[in-house]
Design a protein around this nucleic acid. Structure first.
Lengths: 234, 234, 234, 234
DNA sequence: TATGAATGAGCTTTCATTCAT
DNA sequence: TATGAATGAAAGCTCATTCAT
């Protein structure tokens, strides 16, 4: 596709895609006008249709790009599984393993929250579009299926190793924990909330591993504990 | 308001609200035409404006009604806290308390999932509309703040009693666990998933209490364990 | 028409006509809703159509009523001629006659301005409606023809008597002087102006008779002369 | 503004303005549909909104253009004052001055009637729109104020020179004589009338100067005098 | 390719009129 | 008669898409 374009054409196209991202972040794509995109890109109105057959098509392009971005590095959904693949090969004491799991989970979640922060508006937009855009719906569902399967298998492995509560169904647990991280981030960045990134990553990770039945040793006293101390004694 | 209308008027209005619900479930309210609503309700186009000053206003009405429905009974967001208020008054052994917490959490989550199942499409729609409808945004944010505070205070109490991991920040934990249940349900009912209600409720509840550091005794072997058994040995 | 109605019916109808007047005074009849009229009248929406086949019809009724009112007493258009009919029968010196003409003109104009003040909004509305309402156009044109003819004949008589400049064409003069009074009043009451009724009547009348070539003896120093004195010497 | 458009755009815009003029002449702007204008202009419906943000805005444009046209040359309202500015500098006998005043008044009125004849429908329309269009109302009122002041000051000067009846209040006289000419023209061209332009100009001018107390020497026997001769003896 | 004017289907809202009670 | 809900034909405005230059 890109190969059919001249250099100049490729640049114009890129400007349009970039502009579309910006515009979609600021207002729902239903409220985004082709005019807004071309203005943002600094190209003529008509040029949009030189590169895209319709407004829908640019949505698809942007949507897929964002999905891709969230998928690379730590996992797109829970921010955990992708990075954990292969972990079970290492062998040592349960405590040490738990600790290492926690560390990785923490790293993954930190990364995920950072990514999310950058793309929050767009992710929300994409998620929403999936509700009425068949193509995005499909992408979303595939992603989900994929991630679900990976989570399930990872957790199942850990169960086999006795690292994780065997009472849990790995399919449910994977979906639930992925949901936890995703929705926490979504809510925070969409509706606002008095949270900090590091504290969020630590708390989410702690909940994550404990939920599966692992124990986590004490860390430094969390940042915001002081505030809740008053409450505890009230 | 309803008192200003004749019986016939009240009926027509009700038909319109009901129709709006149906329509909003099937397509985004941006794609919902006033025509769709009146057709669904079986009334003339103009009659819509006899009862609502604008399309927006019926959204508000439906949105608030749904929010109300989800708020009654167990809590709207996490499906847990509302039902747990007052629990800390009872006194007995930690195990017994944990058990009782788990039971209540389970009951709350079961109820929540059932409610969600009934209103899934609409809830998704409302959630989405909140992104570009100021009024719904406000409702949503208020709900969230309210629920967040309740979760936080419940968890803080449990921490004070030594029932819950004191390392966690109750504000983060409350938001995260609420997100887990909400998003699990949302995803399941919106995008589909091979889950069962009872199993979902049990798994979510187990994750919920364990995440907070409580231990839960073994139950009957979960329904779907057989399936994953093969996996465990693979 | 009225005879086909019961007493109660006649009252309701009257209330509606009165309400229509009020409404038309406050906003252009195109902006007046049937709803406004029935609300003002304190009757049910549907009752309007019990008495009038359409919104247009009530306009006609109100319009004709107002036209009638302005026609009685001194003349509708110039505020002069009607009252002057028969004057030529009296015989005496030109000065005395001029004086009497002026007095009558003054009286007529005073009356006219007073009537106009009461009905200004409505008169403006009617005048405007005549532009696109055939029936009112006809009424207006007939009125005009009638008045024109009367003015013309009065002035022609005075010319025959040597009272009025024989150089003027009575048809043009009649139309012009009628226009002067009408438009002065219209502008004043519609767009506002720093005028007083008595001063206006005196000035208009003086202009009126002088325009026709009659001389008017000096009166008391006019009210607002002081202001213009400064100007005169500037 | 016009500079932002391509040549083609300028043409289309001009076609629309012209079409709007035509349409407004034939029916009240409330009855004028955007569709009528575009059809008259021979362009697509949507093109209207390429050049005007609303139906209202084209009214403003047309209204101001017409106001401008009537303002240039002799005065917009009375058709007199503008042309008379500076006259008082010349010095000679009262008769000669009166004569010159009359000549100028005549010239001004002739011009005014000619202009009015060309734009009659539109002027009526604009005048009417001013009743419910705030912007036009303002334009109208400003014009009026401006003209009123000029008339007043001119007449005041003449009074100081002893050329005009000092009994009159110049503010009233200015407004009244302006009204006379305007309304005579309006009525004639709107409702019809058996008048001729030259005769109208002469009669109006004679009335104008005589009203102010100036005397005008006899002219050639007026055109239509024959007709009224029969009357005079009747 | 790039441009921006041209197009018209489609949407919300209004409101005169009708009609069932 | 009185009532007020029901009706649906317009109308203004938007904006994705097309097209001529």
């Amino acid at each position: 596709m890109a190969s059919c374009l001249t250099e100049r054409g490729r640049q114009t196209r890129a400007k349009l895609v970039e502009a579309a991202r910006t515009v979609f972040e600021n207002c729902d794509f239903r409220d985004s006008r082709v005019r807004d995109i071309t203005k943002e890109a600094g190209v003529a109105y008509g040029s949009f249709y030189t590169y895209f057959p319709s407004k829908e098509s640019v949505v698809r392009e942007v949507g897929m790009a964002v999905a891709q971005e969230m998928m690379v590095g730590p996992d797109a959904e829970s921010g955990v599984e992708a990075d954990l693949v292969g972990m079970e090969l290492e062998e040592d004491s349960p405590q040490a393993r738990s600790r290492r799991v926690y560390d990785r989970v923490l790293r993954a979640n930190r990364f995920y929250l950072e990514s999310f922060a950058r793309n929050a508006r767009l992710l929300a937009a994409i998620d929403q579009m999936a509700l009425y855009n068949d193509e995005l719906f499909q992408i979303r569902q595939d992603m989900r299926r994929d991630i679900g399967e990976r989570s399930r298998s990872t957790i199942a492995h850990w169960q086999a190793e006795g690292l994780v509560d065997s009472e849990l169904d790995p399919a449910y647990a994977g979906a639930a924990l992925g949901s936890m991280v995703y929705r926490f981030a979504y809510t925070w960045f969409t509706f606002g909330g008095d949270f900090e990134l590091e504290a969020a990553a630590r708390n989410l990770s702690r909940l994550w591993v404990q939920a599966l039945g692992m124990t986590v040793e004490t860390e430094l006293p969390p940042t915001r504990h002081a505030t809740s101390a008053a409450e505890r004694c009230a």
